[in-house]
Amino acid sequence: MTAPHVIARHDAESSAQSSWWTSVNPIARLGAAFAIALCLVLTIDWVSAATALALELALLPFLGIRPAQFWRRTWPVWLAAPLTGLTIVLYGETSGRVWFEFLFARVSDGSISLGVATMLRVLAIALPSVVLFIGVDTTRLADGLAQIVRLPARFVLGALAGLRLVGLLVEDWRSLELARRARGVGDTGRLRRLAGQAFSLLVIAIRRGSRLATAMEARAFGSSKERSWARPSTLGSRDVTVMLLGFLVGILSIASSLLAGTWNFIAS
């Protein structure tokens, strides 16, 4: 959870991936993940979810993600999907034969099939969303958000500056711990100590942020002059391909469920 650890892991992730994939703009990955989600979110049926999942797993090897890394990042999804399915089996819309009833829970033919569809749907939506995020570099993401998505540059760069403080905060956390030990406070009551120490850390962080703001302003950050970019961020043909593939996965899933007649719009 500590920042140096996160950053180190981040670097390891980037270097572990095949070179063409690391060069894909984070905005293209965002576009692909959103395209898949946008299509799949419209319907809840097992055909569209299974089709999407199959296509995604077929495309996965091309990203060059090592299996160990894949499982380390996606295991919460594999855990959450059947549990969400279970929730729907218990509390999904009832139809057909009712098998079991307890308080609010009602397991029926309809809720079981919805539960299965939910499990596949969660996997089909969340897996690409998580996998496409593996190894995203925050600096490149910020560059893309400001230059391609055209979010206000002051905010994007301010956010990036805030993210960079995380490393310092970890050091602050250690000093706070040492200081508290030296003063002989907080040796008992672990939760209470954690809460107090977290608050102190927030105070330090805001104080540092205020100082950082002065320093940034002194270097003309936030002036009305037009900004130039040290790291240009553009979308190339490779990036467009990635986004189109994401869109294709979504469209093919919708088409498959329409063809199979299982299309089930969520609002109906």
């Binding site: 301010g158 956010a159 962080a205």
Partner: peptide, 23 residues
């Protein structure tokens, strides 16, 4: 209008909350 200090401190608060979210 947002001053620079507003942006940076908002970022610090956002990041700190993000760390809380992770936990």
């Amino acid at each position: 209008r947002w001053r620079v200090v507003d942006i940076v401190v908002a970022s610090v608060i956002g990041v700190a909350c993000g760390v809380l979210f992770v936990v």
